[in-house]
Design a binder for these strands. Structure first.
Lengths: 199, 199, 199, 199
DNA sequence: TTCTAAACGAGACGGTACGTCACGTCTTTCC
DNA sequence: GGAAAGACGTGACGTACCGTCTCGTTTAGAA
């Protein structure tokens, strides 16, 4: 046997210290210098780690950024479901924008989006992992609305895309501070049940 | 007297040849290598020009790309106004996505958005120049709808943002090829005149 | 966390190949194009090396040139000591001027001197490293003369400066080909043991 | 001088204002930034003049530097003749070094020497014009010594070269501040009448 | 226990592109 | 027709990160 795999196990295990030091350094660096100043070289220096180690575990800048964001997802505002999709979405969106604006995480997401561009493969990865996770998080709000009969099931994806687009627009143009009523009006369009009366 | 100001004008004029050579080289390079391969250094080499000359007239990569995009965009059919905002928007959006998808220009816009991230100043510039121009181009469609009494004037900006967000979402996730009916449904939400019935 | 050094270990060693390739390229370039045509950029290209690697080990053009000069200088016969300082100095000086004149190395030293001007720090470096080395090489001649009782120990530095000054004068005015007797007479003043009879 | 808008003349003659403004700007610049910071571009800017104008009248940087030095030659310490060459030379040399050290003129001469290197033609020009003038200025001291019978006429040039070499050595290594007795001892070797007793 | 593969730090290295500086030549316009 | 203003190509500068590649040093599972 021992054909394909070879070597069941031996050798040192991945050091949790190194891992922690790297993600911490990355987070700090991002907080201090923003996406622009985020360089693997600098992360390694601050982590007291080696570039090789970083490249070993995170094949790309995006991978590291993604992990940072994911790690922090617990802090992410969890959507709550009430009786109105608009209310739910408004509350959640406002919270999310505040979260992006107050922390570095707006920068992180910006970085993720920006970093992915230019490499089709990365875009793919970004869409299927990161974005999918985020979408899964809000989907319950829409599902509940469908349950209530407020909108049809097959329009969920289309509406969610509009919602994500709106988020990105505000994030990428650094316009996360918006008058609540204005935001609510925009969201109401997304929640709009009337899909007929357009000429 | 008029001493202090001292000069109306003198000196060689900006060479149209150099300008043309640079923009042409930039366009070609972009077509050949996409946004990733777009380097000022290479543009200069191809244009038979000097880096300094480029930096003199276009303070940044983005500025040069923006100009290229703007001139190229003129080739696109201008949005046309009929009697239905949804029709107009659908036609224009589909054309735009095709334009982005078939040429490198999807890449260019992606690059412009990505490039701006990480430098607040650049975001500002991007928003006030590039984005503003693009928005001005579609606004007539919405204006016409207002004229027709189909929607209220004060909701134009909010709707346009939703529209841009939708564009960006599809652009940045490399999903520019979409079933027409699906796109139409999403756009219908943006055009939706019904803003009531939401709690 | 623990800011204390987590690991102890050394990195890769300086590659002798790179070093050799760089000095060789530098030597070749110097020979072909002289001091004027000597550019770090070109050295890097020829060495198949990276500019950064050069800057890492030789902080300046002068440093690299200095090293090249020093190693090349070793090819020169070391100054030899006989029973007469004047003879020794004459032989050595004539040989040095020939070395300067026949190769590019006159140019190199000229360049080193010229380059240093305008930056006090570089002058300092030039004096304490390059010049000091060169002086150490001739000092034995004078030491021997002191041993023989031909001149006093405390006048060595003063005499050597005169000697260097003479060299530089001829080098910097491109007058390295001189009638031997004339040179000998000038050197004889430097070796002169009579320090009296002057008011 | 006149910061008021210059440029009176139109037509054919060389403008003295421009000339004066350029040399003044050059002098100031040299004083402020030393030889390193001495750039034609900057001189032009300060003079409110055009680079072309400078290049028209002074074919090279050296030419401009040379003129600056020459202009100031009236301030140069004039050698005075007494009964002792050593005294005369000592007084003159000390004065010269002080002059170089206290003003920018040390920098100017350094610049002239440095600038000439690398271009054989310039070295030639430097030697036959600038250097010749300077040598002519001290020659009287040596002539007087010959008159007094202190040294032979045919050794003048050789001694003067030694003297110039000594000056340059100290100038080019930024060692213009020297203990008087030390300098005197070095000069005494140059003045030394004893050309025999060397083995 | 001993062997040995893996993880890790350090960091050298070849690259690519950056944005800047000063050069010397040129063209245009003003007086 | 001299001089200003200044655009331009040229060439090199020194820097920042990239991602890959040795080097020894630990470390811990397998023999």
């Amino acid at each position: 046997m021992t054909n394909t795999p070879r070597r069941t196990s031996a050798g040192a295990k991945r050091s949790p210290e190194a891992r922690a030091a790297i993600t911490k350094a990355a987070r700090d660096l991002l907080a201090e210098r923003g996406y622009r100043g985020f360089a693997i070289e600098e992360v390694a220096k601050r982590a007291g780690s080696a570039k090789t180690t970083i490249y070993k575990w995170w094949p790309s800048k995006s991978a590291l950024l993604g992990e940072i964001y994911a790690t922090e997802k617990d802090i992410l505002p969890r959507p709550t479901v009430t009786l109105s999709l608009l209310d739910d979405l408004h509350r959640h969106t406002a919270g999310l924008w505040r979260f992006w604006n107050d922390n570095v995480f707006g920068d992180v997401v910006r970085g993720l989006i920006a970093e992915a561009q230019g490499d089709p493969q990365q875009v793919e990865i970004f869409r299927t992992t990161f974005l999918a996770q985020r979408l899964a998080a809000v989907r319950p709000l829409f599902d509940a609305a469908v349950q209530r009969g407020d909108l049809s099931a097959d329009s969920i994806d289309e509406r969610m895309e509009l919602w994500v687009g709106l988020n990105w627009f505000h994030l990428l143009t650094a316009q996360l501070e918006v008058e609540p009523q204005r935001l609510r009006r925009q969201l109401s369009l997304i929640c709009c049940s009337d899909l007929s009366g357009h000429r």
